[in-house]
């Protein structure tokens, strides 16, 4: 197996809020291999988006970052500002959920692509224009030459997301981070964008990290999955293995709560209670208060993420109690 391009080790991100420190990401470690698509799944407040922003260096003091973000061997958390400018938005690009707010409304899409091109590569104006047109064509925007002069508001939702991907690709990234890239889109457009990302990944030889709350999106796009809950990774595995045989009570609960598995119009199997409040986490496993498998052992200490099967790691005290072929619908 080849070396990972990105290797996150013990990453912790703590925000300073008026009501005290809030740890949004807690001791998160994972690898991204070349050409791989990693999915980070979790509900709101699980820390999945903050993890991406931490990697990109988008969080500034007083937010505190600890651990390592190793990019091709170099720890980005220690990198100089100048170096970060080169890496973030260059070798690593990011796309967001809301293209309308991520795109600059007073610059044309073409200008925004050119800006990124000049930033990262020496090229003539003519070359840059040709390249920008090529990029728009690459992401499937019809009549790219004309659309270079359009503003974000002249694009539809799906086209805007395509334009944002084109801007992200302008720097020839080796890793694309996608933060809920299709959550704001309709299902037929989501389908188009996901297929586009997969095609671009193969065509350009990138790795991709997709952050999402939708297990269906994970199933259809990812190779590896990391499930996050209350700031921590609670389970990682190859996607089919995770969906077929989850080894963390939270992952299992999440899969079971989805409609489609059981008989129509029969009660679903929800996870009881509400997602936890990060500023008031229980001791031990954060999922314990909602967990049907909970025992005293869960409340003693935070269970570590350990290998429970080949390629599968879980932070569940009772991973061996969970039913074994799980419910993949």
């Amino acid at each position: 197996m080849s070396d990972p391009v990105l290797s996150v080790r013990n990453l912790s991100t703590t925000f300073a809020t008026p009501r005290g420190a809030l740890q949004a990401v807690d001791d998160v470690s994972f690898d991204v291999l070349p050409g791989e698509v990693l999915g980070i799944v979790g509900e709101s407040g699980s820390g999945k988006s903050v993890t991406l922003r931490s990697i990109m260096g988008l969080l500034r003091p007083p937010t505190r970052l600890e651990g390592e973000v190793r990019w091709l061997g170099e720890n980005l958390l220690r990198a100089s500002r100048e170096r970060m400018y080169k890496v973030a938005g260059g070798e690593i690009s990011i796309i967001f959920q809301e293209p309308m707010t991520a795109l600059n409304p007073v610059l044309t899409v073409g200008e925004q692509i050119l800006e990124s091109l000049y930033e990262h590569e020496r090229m003539s104006k003519k070359q840059a224009k040709a390249r920008a047109e090529e990029l728009l064509a690459l992401v499937g925007i019809p009549s790219p030459r004309e659309r270079l002069g359009d503003y974000a508001h002249q694009f539809s939702g799906g086209m805007r997301q395509r334009a944002m991907i084109a801007i992200a690709l302008a720097s020839n990234p080796k890793l694309l981070l996608a933060d809920e890239p299709t959550t704001a889109l309709d299902v037929t457009i989501q389908d188009q964008i996901l297929k586009l990302l997969l095609r671009l990944k193969d065509q350009l030889g990138m790795s991709v990290v997709i952050v999402t709350h939708d297990l269906g999106v994970v199933a259809q796009t990812c190779d590896q999955v990391a499930v996050m809950y209350a700031g921590r990774i609670v389970e990682t595995a190859p996607v089919s293995q995770l969906l077929r045989s989850p080894r963390h009570a939270y992952t299992l609960g999440l899969l079971r709560s989805l409609p489609g598995g059981g008989v129509r119009r029969q009660p679903l199997l929800p996870i009881l209670g509400a997602p936890p409040n990060l500023s008031d986490l229980p001791p031990g496993c954060a999922f314990a208060p909602r967990c049907p498998y909970v025992s005293d052992a869960c409340r003693v200490r935070v269970p570590p993420l350990v290998e429970v099967a080949p390629e599968q790691r879980s932070a569940c005290v009772h991973h061996d109690l969970l039913p074994r072929p799980g419910v993949a619908a």
Binding site: L272, A274, P289
Partner: peptide
């Protein structure tokens, strides 16, 4: 159900 997070 779903009441655990209610404050006193």
């Amino acid at each position: 159900m779903a009441t655990s997070s209610l404050s006193p």
